[in-house]
């Protein structure tokens, strides 16, 4: 069986996010790029399936983006146990989900993957569409928000998360593209042996230029406005604590 895992480099949550001079993108020079959280869970799920089946299953990590931002992502995937990597390189930041999915589709269609796993959304653009779009473009069955998987003969059973504590099991025939929800497993750390071995694994680079014009365009980024009258409390710790005590006791009266 062949499993692809789509994984993306995104700014870490501690990174400071500044709009750049074009106002269409962020200043990447002050950003620390890391693997998108739900993608780590997607990779772990694929690796666990490989280990369980133990019958020549191949796991391929796939990423798209610029060389600088993504190199860590691929190294990390290979070090954790993926067999090879495909890097769709483009130095511009694409934002149209459908154009992005088409690039994946063009570059992956000849691989004939049985399964494609992706994180349910990236914590930068957050469209949450790539895995489903790609599934449709490649004629695969699709499901989102997988929180448990069970590989069966020629098909995969997935527990889907629904709203407010509800779930549903769906069964999809191969080939299938499934987006994975965080918390499905415990992502591993790469071992030293894995890190050393990663250097010898195949990493294919393909050129990722858009062939089509985008269907939707980012006009400009902006900082969201506060809707509420928020009182800011800052300064030294003792001052903050005294102020909080006053609010809790005298304003909100939740403590006596």
């Amino acid at each position: 069986m062949k499993i692809a895992v789509l994984t993306k480099a995104i700014p870490s949550y501690e990174s400071s996010i500044r709009i750049d001079s074009t106002s269409k993108w962020i200043d990447e020079s002050v950003v620390n790029f890391v693997v998108n959280e739900s993608d780590s869970y997607a990779l772990e799920e694929a690796l666990q399936i490989k280990e369980k089946l133990d019958n020549g299953t191949e796991v391929v990590v796939v990423t798209m983006g610029s060389q600088d931002n993504t190199s860590k992502v691929l190294k990390d995937g290979l070090a954790k146990g993926a067999d090879r990597a495909i890097f769709i390189q483009n130095e511009d930041s694409y934002t149209d989900p459908l154009s992005i999915a088409k690039l994946f589709s063009e570059n992956l269609k000849d691989e004939n993957f049985d399964l494609i796993f992706s994180g349910l959304q990236s914590d930068d653009l957050g469209s949450g569409q790539t895995g489903v779009l790609l599934g449709e473009l490649l004629g695969m069955s699709t499901a989102t928000l997988g929180i448990e998987t069970d590989i069966q003969d020629g098909q995969i059973k997935i527990k889907r998360e629904l709203e407010s504590g509800w779930f549903q099991w769906v069964t999809l025939p191969f080939p299938a593209s499934i987006s994975i929800q965080s918390g499905i497993n415990e992502p591993r750390y790469p071992s030293l042996k894995g890190i050393m071995g990663a250097k010898r694994k195949e990493s294919k680079v393909v050129d990722g230029q858009l062939s089509d014009s985008p269907k939707q365009n980012f006009l400009n980024l902006f900082i969201p406005k506060t809707e509420k009258a928020t009182e800011k409390i800052e300064g030294d710790v003792d001052g903050i604590v005294a102020k909080l005590m006053d609010i809790l006791k005298n304003k909100l009266r939740v403590v006596s």
Partner: peptide, 21 residues
Amino acid sequence: YMVRDFLPRVSAKLDIPFVSD
């Protein structure tokens, strides 16, 4: 969650944009 699950399929089938969320 249901819209996340199926509306991108319509976008890809008809080659039309889906502006989400």
